[in-house]
Design a protein around this nucleic acid. Structure first.
Lengths: 206, 206
DNA sequence: AAGAGTATGTGATAAATTTCACGTACTCAA
DNA sequence: TTGAGTACGTGAAATTTATCACATACTCTT
């Protein structure tokens, strides 16, 4: 299924969490639309891609849909993550409580800088990148967060690929080379900020 | 122009920077394609949306195209940013050197937590959010980075909108309500990680 | 000066994505 | 039990986005 569809599912799942917390039992595509900003037809189409989760005339069971989306997204698998690069961003990601809440656990941290290796950050001891292959298999890590400087990113990624990692969240501002079967999500601040800059500029002109 | 197009322009601009640094004078859409992973036709179409920057049989002048893209994206305007929320992520963003390199300058930091107000971080004194309106106009701030917890995000955004801010980079994991003329770029780690989780799950099943 | 090679810009086409609009199915009240 | 109201699921249409393929235009060599 298309990337954009799956990304919307995440948004729906979050909405369901909020609705469940406020005690709602049933929810309509119209309600999800109002909260998320996507059209109701879009919501229904997205969900229908994966099954018949709703009941006509009634809506979706908040609890049931939540369970289904969690299964589709695989968020209950208990994925184990490695963090590569413990600069400012890496440290912030380690301290970030959100991953645990989502069901993802950072179980190892690596850096190439020997001054950082050995330090303890948020309960993890920083290890040298050369240890990645061994530790990934030892700790059963399936997913990596790449938070190195741009220059180091490709080389570190190559280590990860050799270690068998097939999904990477990349914060390094650089397009990475990897086989098609490896999934890489890029979080690129330059792109985001430049897009905002563009839209401010357009506004100024028109 | 479409969001996706503009985002690709950022990627092209970065590529041009690397090429310029290695002394290249001229670059073809095929070369940009090879580096960025987008098709050459896509690159040409994207650029042609904004003007005739290339020369047939020759390619694009690295320097010229760089100048044009910088103008289109408005990155030379010297945008001034406010940071809202100095938790782990906010601190990391303050310490991040990348914004300066891109030509964006964080000139003020705000937080609602009185224990954080008054502290100096990366050369900035943290101010209370109640000061936003005054400081935005005083310091001529056009763009804001929202790095508050999810619960506080909408309220802080409302402050920003009242202060005249029309472009926001949002890190809070929550869909924000704002008038259509306000541009909001969302950086949502849950969505990114859950997408990776989805793709690992799919792989496992097939 | 001519021919071979290169590479843009763009109509036309194809593919992907979104929206429309309605048949179907369920609930509830009278 | 009937009728009014609700809301999903989904073919069909519309829209958006990406790709193809080639006319055009430039460079360089001989």
């Amino acid at each position: 299924m298309a990337q954009t569809t799956v990304r919307r599912l995440s948004t729906y799942l979050r909405t369901l969490g909020l609705e469940a917390a406020s005690g709602t039992q049933s929810i309509s595509s119209a309600r999800i639309s109002a909260v998320t900003g996507f059209t109701a037809a879009q919501v229904r189409r997205d969900l229908a891609n994966f099954g018949h989760f709703g009941r006509r005339g009634v809506g979706y069971s908040v609890d049931g849909l939540q369970k289904n989306l969690r299964a589709i997204l695989g968020v209950d698998v208990g994925w184990r993550l490695a963090l590569l690069g413990v600069g400012n961003l890496g440290k912030a990601l380690l301290a970030y409580r959100g991953f645990d809440q989502m069901g993802f656990k950072i179980v190892a941290a690596f850096d190439n800088d020997h001054r950082k290796v050995g330090a303890t950050l948020s309960g993890l001891t920083v290890e040298p990148v050369s240890e990645v292959a061994r530790r990934v298999s030892e700790l059963d890590i399936q997913l990596a967060i790449l938070a190195t400087p741009a220059e180091a990113a490709q080389e570190v990624l190559d280590n990860l690929l050799a270690a068998g990692i097939r999904a990477v969240l990349n914060f390094a501002p650089r397009r990475l080379q990897a086989p098609a079967e490896v999934e890489i999500s890029n979080v690129d601040l330059a792109i985001e900020v430049e897009y905002l800059s563009y839209s401010l500029t357009r506004r100024r002109l028109s």
